[in-house]
Amino acid sequence: MNREIAPGIHWIYEAGSDRTEQFELAERKPDWYESGREAYVPQCAYLVEGDNETLLFDTLSPASTDQILDAIDELVGTRGLDYLVVSHPDVPHAGNTYAILEEHSETTLVAPAYGNDHELYKLDESLQVAEGDSIDLGNRVAEFHEATFLDAPVSVWMTEQKTETLFPVDWMGFPHLDEESLLFVDELDGTFDASRLVEFHGRVLFWYQYVDVEKTNAEIDNLIEKFDPEIIAPAHGLVIRENASEYMELMKDVTQTIDNQGRIGTLG
């Protein structure tokens, strides 16, 4: 399942399994959940087409090898895939790296320059990118950034300058209900409930339960100033394409809420 977010930027979506039972949603009844519905925390990859070159950001999980290979064929056709960027070598993000490289001998593997054990992830022969590095695709440029809120040390974030899209990987993910797959946040019924962000970060960013709230929220202010994006394209949520910075502001409440209530559970 794919959807074009903006001309030349494609969202490739993997639903994963229904989380209703795992998250005990019927019993816990978080504000965002409607009883009787299914709930998903997706895996998302993004394909960026420039005039000259194409770039894929992340690979979906090993449960979706055929899907990502088909999506690449459908979206780049005979142009080929020039770059595969792995945000971090976590299985659900990077699990199809070798399947893609096997099919696409033309592709350059791009990996985070951060961390010090690339060889253990078979990333030692990649093009390594850090804050300030960029890849010119023709009429658009992908820029790379230190991943602020992460799990693995070998991590990188990306922005696309033309559309001012931020790809914050594991940050700013959130669950959605059945029938909300591939919707933009502005297409959801009613107002966006911040408890969706709490559900995700209270599981995936397990360390949010230990943060210094003031310091972390000052960092979020820095990110808002640094990126001020038009579009936010998370790896585990729906795409935000209106008032994106306001959703970054919401993340400060998320920090505070998790500090008060502790960790919700796991995801992974």
């Binding site: 795992q22 999980s61 090993p62 299985v91 699990g95 796991t266």
Partner: peptide
């Protein structure tokens, strides 16, 4: 294994242990 999404983690046949 501890994963809540064994298929996404490439371990579809694991017996689950929860924290």
């Amino acid at each position: 294994a501890s994963s809540g999404s064994p298929e996404q983690q490439g371990l579809p046949d694991a017996r689950k242990c929860s924290i």
